[in-house]
Amino acid sequence: MRKPVVGISYKTYVNTIDKATELVKALADVTEDEKEVEKFVFPSLGVMYPVAQVLKGSEIAFGAQNISPYENGAYTGEVSIESIIDMGGTHIEIGHAERQSIFHETLDMIHLKTKLTLEKGLTPVLCIGERERLDNKSGRKQVLKEQILTSFGEVDAALIEKVILAYEPVWAIGQAEAADAAYVHQTHEIIREIVKEAYSAEAAEAIRIIYGGSVSKDNVYEITTHNDVDGVFIGRFGHDPANYKQILHIVKQVKSK
């Protein structure tokens, strides 16, 4: 049985040490007894070290919103995965739509980051999703298949199941409403089908697929009721620790049935 996941990214909304540490401490406090759901936080890169100190010994994992595709070397301005490991980070967010659209990150670069993350024993949270709503199922499958297979590329097939696939339709990110549940459910079925066809039934059954894109306490129940939805990736609606706790509780209830 796949362990459900509730993750959150603060993007670059929370960038001071005082605010970031206060926020994650509150998050750890309200979820300290919750062990049935995997939890991770992606703080702003500039406050990662103090956040790491606050979360040490807690049930909440943390990691980076981005890394260099290269472990070390002459790559000025990049964040090395070596630093994330040294701080105790365990998860790396890879390929978010904003990284692609604003910073021109390519699928080939996403592949290098995914491969490096897996080789170093960390968990890639690999973001995938179509730029506009595609009601044509085969068209949607083709777009997602290209993203998934190119991002995985030369990755050892035995490591595929360690990836968390974060399905984030670009057209639903930062909107008032998430994608409708039926669309999300069908897409998660498609994604698991792609993994099965490209790798194996075992990998498809083991890999976790979470939904991100305007997730809130009001829509998380409907979104996560499908067996192929293993959790959620929260943005702004989780900045209040009480909201995060409520979302976590709903996911736990749904997935324990």
Rank of each mutant, 00 (worst) to 15 (best):
I8K: 02
T12Y: 09
T12N: 14
N15P: 00
T16E: 06
D18K: 15
D18Y: 14
D18S: 15
D18E: 15
T21L: 09
V24H: 02
K25D: 12
L27S: 08
D29V: 14
V30N: 06
V30K: 02
E32T: 07
K35N: 14
F40D: 09
S44F: 14
S44K: 10
L45A: 14
G46N: 13
V47I: 05
Y49I: 02
Q53P: 00
Q53R: 12
Q53M: 14
L55A: 08
K56I: 09
G57M: 07
S58N: 03
F62C: 04
F62V: 05
G63M: 02
G63C: 05
Q65C: 06
I67V: 10
I67T: 11
Y70G: 00
E71G: 04
G73H: 00
Y75A: 09
E78C: 11
I81Y: 06
E82A: 03
G88S: 07
T90H: 11
I92A: 06
E93W: 08
H96L: 05
A97R: 12
I102S: 12
I102L: 15
L107M: 14
L107H: 08
I110R: 05
L112I: 00
K113G: 09
T114A: 13
G121Y: 04
L122N: 13
T123L: 07
P124W: 13
V125R: 10
L126F: 05
C127G: 02
R133C: 06
N136E: 15
G139D: 14
G139E: 15
R140C: 13
R140K: 12
K145Y: 13
I148W: 03
G153V: 02
A157L: 11
A158E: 15
K162F: 08
I164T: 10
P169S: 02
V170Q: 01
G174I: 06
A181R: 08
A182R: 12
V184A: 00
H188A: 04
I190A: 01
I190S: 00
I191Q: 08
R192K: 13
E193Q: 15
K196G: 03
K196I: 12
A198N: 08
Y199T: 07
S200E: 05
A204C: 05
A206Y: 07
R208N: 02
K217R: 10
K217H: 00
D218A: 07
Y221D: 14
Y221G: 01
Y221V: 11
E222W: 10
T225H: 08
H226A: 13
N227A: 15
D228R: 13
D230K: 07
D230A: 10
G231M: 09
V232C: 03
V232T: 11
F233G: 00
F233W: 07
I234Q: 04
I234S: 02
F237L: 01
G238Q: 05
H239G: 02
H239Y: 13
D240I: 06
D240G: 04
D240R: 03
D240C: 05
P241R: 05
P241D: 03
A242R: 09
N243K: 06
K245W: 07
Q246R: 12
I247C: 01
Q253S: 12
Q253G: 12
K255F: 06
